[in-house]
């Protein structure tokens, strides 16, 4: 095995993290806890698989994932912004809802409780960078966080997102439509995470029940470990993906029990939150209902 293999496998594992973490950063910078990332991903994975199977076009599958992710995210947004519900409770509910809905439709469409039939993906078989280059979602994954950084720090919308997540009353006092900014941020966070889910389903050419397996939570951990900025979140995603790659490579050698490696993202997040590597300050209005 070469270094190149290790890197390409890391990238392959990192893509869904990168996409979902972009959603996490966007949502949390606007002041809304991104607990539903896992649910948006799972919903996106199912929509992508089902529509790709029915239409034969992975592109239509990706479009369906965007719609599915946005719908789930808007349910969360309506619950937390319009009805000022608790963000943690509604975020957990979104994840449970996504598990139930995908299971229900899996049985309804494909008559299976475990997986869909094989669905068309984006071509490029095997491992290695060449195979990955055929997959447009990989390219999107690579540019998503730099693009988000550009939006957050260079555009008026990004300035407003940062203001809304930090001091919504101040933003409202100068005429920023706090509620609208939050709806938009959450809807896009759902779409981004759903793209991550679509990547998983199309990469594996099928949807399997619960296939996101905690990747949304790893993306949330990367958001926090990366201190809510796109660069940090991107590096955290790559770190977590590298750890997972290492764990896969070490399987069979019994050098380290794989469970320990799987813990790395969460342990690092706790370490980061405990303030070991500098202070980790979340957006000040995170988790608080809008004051507008």
């Amino acid at each position: 095995m070469s270094v190149l293999d290790f890197l390409s496998q890391t990238l392959r594992i990192a893509v869904p993290f990168l996409l979902a973490a972009a959603g996490g950063v966007l949502s949390e910078r606007a002041g809304l806890i991104a607990l539903g990332l896992e649910g948006y991903m799972l919903g996106g994975a199912f929509c992508a698989a089902a529509v790709s199977f029915a239409s034969g076009s992975p592109w239509l599958g990706v479009s369906a994932a965007l719609v599915g992710g946005a719908v789930l995210a808007l349910v969360y947004a309506v619950g937390t912004i319009r009805f000022r519900g608790d963000q943690v409770v509604i975020g957990i509910a979104i994840n449970l809802l996504a598990v139930g809905l995908t299971r229900f439709f899996l049985r309804l469409f494909f008559g299976s409780s475990s997986n869909s039939p094989r669905v068309p993906g984006f071509g490029g078989t095997g491992t290695g960078f060449l195979a990955l280059a055929y997959n447009p979602l990989v390219w999107i994954g690579v540019i998503v966080l730099p693009t988000l950084g550009w939006i957050l720090y260079r555009t008026p919308f990004g300035l407003r997102v940062r203001a809304v997540g930090e001091h919504p009353a101040a933003a409202a006092s100068v005429g920023v439509p706090v509620t609208r900014v939050r709806y938009i941020a959450v809807a896009f966070s759902g779409m981004l995470a759903a793209l991550g889910g679509a990547y998983l389903a199309l990469d594996q050419h099928q949807f399997t029940d619960g296939m996101t397996a905690g990747r949304g939570f790893i993306a949330l951990a990367a958001t926090i470990f990366g201190r809510w900025n796109p660069k940090g979140a991107g590096l955290a995603c790559l770190l977590f993906a590298a750890a997972e790659t290492l764990q896969i490579r070490l399987q069979g050698t019994h050098a380290i029990p794989s469970q320990f490696v799987e813990m790395i993202p969460y342990v690092l997040t706790i370490v980061a939150l405990a303030g070991v590597v500098g202070r980790s300050v979340p957006p000040a209005a995170l988790g608080k209902p809008s004051t507008e």
Binding site: T155, P156, R162, A163, H167, A169, V174, P283
Partner: peptide, 29 residues
């Protein structure tokens, strides 16, 4: 000017001043 300041501490002075009435060059601040 309120007694309790309406400023976003994590933004720069210029960002706070223009927030809500931003000056742009194309799509960019």
């Amino acid at each position: 000017v309120h007694q309790h300041f309406m400023l976003v501490p994590t933004l720069t002075v210029a960002e706070n001043v223009m927030l809500g009435s931003e000056i742009t060059k194309g799509p960019v601040l």
